[in-house]
């Protein structure tokens, strides 16, 4: 459609026409812009005129939350502190449990290994009658390993010093057990003799110091730890886990040790009453057959 000449003239001349605004217009624009921005900023605050109250409330809530959380943390720490001694009690026990452990470990040792002797210097405090009884346990097994020498009693000051070092005794005791496993028979004999002399020589309440000199401490400690770890792991296994282990042995044709896990009889016992009637029926049947055969004859 053809455009009207007047329209065409004005469109061509004025479509891209520009008129420079005055500086005053620019200032007005800037003023309006700042006013607008200020209104927008003020608008945010105006929307929340009570923002101070909200901020105060938020601060109180935050403080309370922090307080409660910190209180919980301190309670946890206190609980942990109270629990620690409970778990540590067996460790801090003096000689009696230590000697019991030693006796059990000694009982499990194989004296025929006849390894090179390792000696450890160790102090055992025997204060009470229980300790003496425990000390006697060293003598009880015939296969009991030996202790090279037994020192003379020590004075009371050294007893206190030993008592202070009790945790160290606990750490060194397994080592002693391993050492004792590697004794030869002669040492066992001397150990037995010496131990018998312990109870004869020393009275209850005296401290007996057993001095054993270590040769290769680290080389000896490692297998003891692994053994104890394996034993612990074995003990910690539940009955079902043990049973499953035995089932796997059975599955792969290995020897099954059900007694080891506390099962006395592998075969189920059949109640006699269950087959009582059947047994009587069979008996009657056999008797009848015999009777018939006898009649025929």
């Amino acid at each position: 459609m053809k455009k009207h000449p007047i329209d065409e003239l004005f469109a061509r001349k004025l479509a891209e026409h520009r008129q420079e605004p005055s500086q005053k217009a620019f200032e007005k624009f800037q003023a309006r812009l700042q006013e607008k921005q200020a209104r927008r900023r003020g608008g945010v605050l105006a929307m929340n005129r009570n923002w101070g109250y909200y901020a105060a409330a938020a601060g109180i809530i935050a403080a309370l939350t922090i307080g409660v959380l910190s209180q919980r943390n301190t309670n946890d720490i206190v609980v942990a502190d109270t629990e620690k001694p409970k778990t540590g009690v067996p460790v801090q026990k003096p000689a009696s449990p230590i000697t019991q452990d030693n006796s059990s470990q000694i009982a499990q040792t194989n004296i025929e290994d006849k390894k090179e002797l390792n000696t450890v210097r160790q102090a055992l405090s025997v204060k009470s009658a229980n300790d003496i009884v425990a000390a006697k346990r060293f003598n009880v097994p015939a296969k009991a390993p030996a202790v090279k020498e037994i020192a003379s009693p020590i004075d009371e000051g050294s007893i206190e010093a030993i008592a202070l070092n009790k945790p160290e005794e606990v750490q060194t005791n397994p080592l002693q057990a391993e050492i004792l496993t590697s004794r030869n028979t002669t040492d066992v004999a001397t150990y037995a003799d010496n131990n018998s002399s312990i109870t004869n020589k020393y009275n209850p309440g005296e401290t007996v110091v057993v001095v054993i000199t270590p040769i290769e401490e680290t080389a000896v400690q490692a297998p003891v730890e692994t053994e104890t770890m394996a034993e612990k792991a074995e003990k910690e296994k539940s009955f079902l886990a043990k049973l499953y282990g035995e089932y796997k042995h059975f599955k792969y044709g290995e020897k099954v040790d059900l007694k080891g896990i506390g099962v006395k009889d592998a075969m189920a016992k059949v109640d006699d009453n269950l087959f009582k009637e059947e047994r009587e029926d069979v008996r009657d049947f056999v008797q009848r057959r015999i009777g018939r055969m006898q009649k025929r004859e």
Binding site: E16, H17, R18, Q19, E20, P21, A25, F26, K28
Partner: peptide, 21 residues
Amino acid sequence: FASKMLAVCNRYVGDKMEAED
């Protein structure tokens, strides 16, 4: 765009001062 838009506004309003506003 100010110069171009001022021309547009001026064509409708008919007064430059008012057109600036």
